[in-house]
Nucleic acid binder design. Sequence first.
DNA 1: TATGAATGAGGTTTCATTCAT
DNA 2: TATGAATGAAACCTCATTCAT
Lengths: 205, 205, 205, 205
Amino acid sequence: MSGNPPDKRRRILDAAVTVFAQHGFYTAKVSQIAKEAGVADGTIYLYFKNKEDILIQVFIDAMDEILKRQEAALAQQTDPVQRLRTFITTHFAAVAESRAMAEVITVELRQSSKFMRDTDMKPFGQYLGMIARIVDDGVKAGLFADAVDSRLIARAIFGAVDELALEWAMSDRIASLVEAGNHVADLFLQGLARRAPPADPTQVG
Amino acid sequence: MSGNPPDKRRRILDAAVTVFAQHGFYTAKVSQIAKEAGVADGTIYLYFKNKEDILIQVFIDAMDEILKRQEAALAQQTDPVQRLRTFITTHFAAVAESRAMAEVITVELRQSSKFMRDTDMKPFGQYLGMIARIVDDGVKAGLFADAVDSRLIARAIFGAVDELALEWAMSDRIASLVEAGNHVADLFLQGLARRAPPADPTQVG
Amino acid sequence: MSGNPPDKRRRILDAAVTVFAQHGFYTAKVSQIAKEAGVADGTIYLYFKNKEDILIQVFIDAMDEILKRQEAALAQQTDPVQRLRTFITTHFAAVAESRAMAEVITVELRQSSKFMRDTDMKPFGQYLGMIARIVDDGVKAGLFADAVDSRLIARAIFGAVDELALEWAMSDRIASLVEAGNHVADLFLQGLARRAPPADPTQVG
Amino acid sequence: MSGNPPDKRRRILDAAVTVFAQHGFYTAKVSQIAKEAGVADGTIYLYFKNKEDILIQVFIDAMDEILKRQEAALAQQTDPVQRLRTFITTHFAAVAESRAMAEVITVELRQSSKFMRDTDMKPFGQYLGMIARIVDDGVKAGLFADAVDSRLIARAIFGAVDELALEWAMSDRIASLVEAGNHVADLFLQGLARRAPPADPTQVG
DNA sequence: TATGAATGAGGTTTCATTCAT
DNA sequence: TATGAATGAAACCTCATTCAT
């Protein structure tokens, strides 16, 4: 069923997530990853060009998965309001499933953006694009206020969500990511909401 | 007081910001910092315990300055709404003054949080505290909705703002940070605003 | 006998000559030889003890062949003068047939002499012996000057011939090895020639 | 007097000669050179770009010295015959002074010619040029036979001389390099000598 | 204080060789 | 015989840090 015989690549990637989360990319040693994956040091180089490549593949894989997951979750919704809430919820759900992955993605992504400039960072762009599209749709549908820069909003939302995921991963202040997700969704949805004819100022806030 | 003509400490810190921004903490070489600062390699160790310490001092200095700056800016405002807008604006203004510092703070802070757990990260806590207090004040004043977790909101706001600063620092998409700051402030302020008697609760989600 | 269709041993040896000539023994990779030979890496170890052994066999084979060839060529001559000329000519003819083999033999032989001390280097000794014998015969026949150290002369001749082969293999200065061979033969033959009644001893110095 | 304070560069080069002679370039370990030189491994990289660079500098230094030495020795002679004999004698004298250097030069030079193609191999060209010029002068002076390709002859002489140096360095067959030098000089000088009125052309071949 | 030559620990990576299939 | 994925030893080199001057 799952990855065939040894499926070493998968095991190495999983080990890398664990080790990178624990020590950070630069401090992590390739030999640690090998040990964690239960393979010889050299084996890693049968599957990855070098240490950096491991990190890149971790990202690509992780983004791939979360993108698919968001698509699946969003496919069932048409209302932009619901879709934005779903997006945030799904993001947190994914994050919650792997604290280590969350740490790697949120912490290492930035540091690494240096050497990943050359790399295929499209997946991240796509991810932002998903948010932006939802916002655009909401605007078109008259649900969100006009004249918002959807790209800017997308980035702001991602930043907020990412920061909370980071806090959750690194401390214990946030008990429930689901709950936090709903709070944040509320915040942004009300923030984006079209100011109804302010005849009735009580409508939105 | 001690900051005399040579003021090597300052020069080293400034050089470090430049070099860290350019190469990232781990890739940056102490000797590069020394050269950029115009001092000998060994001299750095008269002012800092080690490479890590340089980064920590960079943070402490930077946080110190921005904290002072925010305090000064906020001192002139009492309205929580105005204060939150001012906070965001001031943050962006500070960031805009030093792209390099912005990169270091936003990019390296996360990666480094690993080894900074043991370190005095209070300044960052203070920074979040400033936001949280504004939010709390707004709630108390009946301007913002009740039952918001101000600590959570603070983190969300910081995340959004930090992410936008990062994008500005690394790409050219965001032309005006001031303008972006006002957009984000609008977004959060409307998001936080007290919901008047929710006549139609289904409206927003 | 055993040299059947697959004849992998032969293919591996030929591939080794090519790869060693291109990269040198130490820089050459066993996997390259395998690829060039069209066999799997592991297969090589069914025919050779290790990488070093491949090189040794290359030498032994090459020496074997050139020894046979020289024997055949010399068998038809009795005059030491003709024999020496033939030897040189034949050497160059053999070299000219495989530039790669020439490079390996001339270039790698020396470097490798380190680890070949323990090895059967008799073929090389035999080769020098062939030259020495010709010289000795020439002396006995009264054609070459007495009191020459034939072993020394043999080595000098081999050095000269080998050096020219090397130059031919590595540059393009020497267009015709055959012609070069005749020049060198002339040089050595006159050098060895019994000094005819030294009518004018000042002539040569 | 000699190289000032530590004169590490010199010590490292000398150590390298010893170690390269003992193990060959590829088998030699940088740490061995460091130990032999009495410095830390890292120190080597303050003076040389990498391991290869050490070898290159060894050559350049060695060629530099022998070139100077030949110039000095030859400066005192005008007769081409004497000059050629002096050249050969001087070469052997230099070689005899450092068996290790002789091994490195004669053995490693060839193998290394691979990566030294890009390098400044002019010194070697100069060395061959010295021989060629002597031959040319001899021809012009009517002492050596016309129509010799001096460049070819130079290479042949170098090959012979180098081969003998190699044998001396690696075995014990050659007791006296000086004596061997005279033999070889005799050989080549007679070989080059203008054929006096070839009273009996059958004599030599 | 300031220098910068020297140190040396330690990690990434290669690649000859093995062995289960 | 043949394969080629896996191994793991080992070496080059970097660079933070020290210390004699």
